[in-house]
Amino acid sequence: MNSMRRLSKKLRSLGNRVLDLPKDVIFDLPRITMIGNMQLYVENHRGVRKFTPDKLTLQLSSGSLEITGKQLVIRAILNEEVFIEGVVEQVKYWPDFRRND
């Protein structure tokens, strides 16, 4: 079982090197797009953990994303993507959520 996983990881790494695919597709990572400090677009999130006008924490497949700012509003939200507006001051990436909670 463990060797299988290692093998699949190796295979994926190989595929990535050979085909040069974007990493978010291969590793199931979020894609974060920011327009100035006004708009923030996060794809591939796993839900909202905390939402206040000053702070928004998004659950990711591994780890979490913490956005701090002012007058934060979720303009639109779908199962896998979220569109945030407001004054963004900081975007903090926690690799594993267990550590920061």
Binding site: V48, K50, F51, P53, R75, A76, I77
Partner: peptide, 27 residues
């Protein structure tokens, strides 16, 4: 637990928009 409620909505594949936090307990 409004955030929980929000996540449950997303799981049900409901579309929601213009979400604002009014105060600690209200969304």
């Amino acid at each position: 637990k409004v955030e929980w409620f929000l996540n449950r909505l997303l799981h049900q594949r409901m579309y929601i928009w213009d979400i604002r936090r009014k105060d600690l307990e209200t969304l």
